[in-house]
């Protein structure tokens, strides 16, 4: 359990506020992910042409992909405002997931480079943001009255379940992402430990390492897709009139 022994580079009680703690590796990786996503997206769309070439094709494919996700949950007129959110979520989560697969850097047993989504707090933050946004758009598009009535549908006595559902949604959305990526990182860490233990370990761990890295990239993509898909499902529950 090599990487589990790693310490986290915590900075506690920032500005003298007792609850304001920073995990510097998380902060670093959030910013790295955001910068990578930004550079990727902006460089891909820097030379836009009516006849697309190269990266523009790829970006348009992603846009069509997210359009498909939104279109399968709500009609496009309602859903088109969520397109930038869906695109950014998809790219940010995918890049975050893959960053921890590519490499893991620790200095003095303190881990710095990993997937930010392998942290339960951060995964839950994204999930909470999505659920809060869905409530916000629900109120914005249907009005407070209609939004409130939705909690009493289809039966008023299901109200407590509706409330629980909101928290369950948040929890499952966040922890699904965290669990998948965290598990992947643990196995990668173990394999890395095996490979550094000796010649036999190196060759014994090489094939599983490669296989698991490939699989982790796949899982990272699938989890990003699932996260965006569920985001749009929750959004459509809140903004659609038809249920």
């Amino acid at each position: 359990m090599k990487n589990l022994d790693h310490k986290q580079p915590m900075v506690t009680d920032v500005l003298g506020i007792s609850w304001l703690d920073f995990n510097m590796s998380n902060v670093l990786m959030i910013i790295v992910s955001a910068v990578i996503v930004f550079i990727l997206a902006v460089s891909a769309t820097s030379s836009l042409k009516r006849k697309p070439t190269g990266m523009q094709n790829f970006m348009e494919w992603i846009i069509d992909f997210v359009k498909g996700i939104i279109g399968s949950n709500m009609d496009w007129k309602t859903g088109k405002q969520f397109l930038p959110l869906g695109l950014t979520l998809l790219l940010f989560i995918f890049v975050s997931n893959v960053l921890g697969v590519v490499t893991m850097i620790s200095v003095d047993h303190t881990i710095y480079w990993k997937s930010p989504t392998a942290d339960p707090g951060l995964a839950l933050t994204l999930a909470t943001m999505v659920v809060v946004l869905s409530h916000y758009y629900g109120i914005k598009m249907k009005g407070v009255k209609e939004y409130g009535k939705d909690f009493l549908r289809p039966m008023p006595f299901l109200f407590p379940l509706k409330i629980i559902e909101e928290f369950a949604n948040t929890l499952t959305l966040g922890l699904r992402l965290f669990g998948n990526i965290f598990a992947g990182e643990i196995l990668l860490g173990l394999l890395a430990g095996l490979m550094t233990s000796g010649i036999g370990g190196f060759f014994g761990g090489l094939i599983p390492m490669l296989a698991w890295q490939g699989f982790s990239v796949f899982v990272g993509a699938i989890q990003a897709f699932i996260f965006v898909m569920l985001t749009m499902v929750y959004m459509s529950h809140k903004v659609s009139h038809d249920h």
């Binding site: 986290q8 915590m10 900075v11 506690t12 920032v14 609850w19 304001l20 703690d21 920073f22 995990n23 998380n26 902060v27 959030i30 910013i31 955001a34 996503v37 930004f38 930038p84 959110l85 950014t88 940010f92 930010p116 942290d119 707090g121 951060l122 933050t125 994204l126 943001m129």
Partner: peptide, 19 residues
């Protein structure tokens, strides 16, 4: 260890800026 509220705030802030 606690809950790293700072991380969460950073993530939210960064994500919104990125968006």
């Amino acid at each position: 260890t606690g809950v790293a509220w700072g991380d969460m705030a950073t993530l939210l802030f960064t994500f919104i800026i990125l968006l």
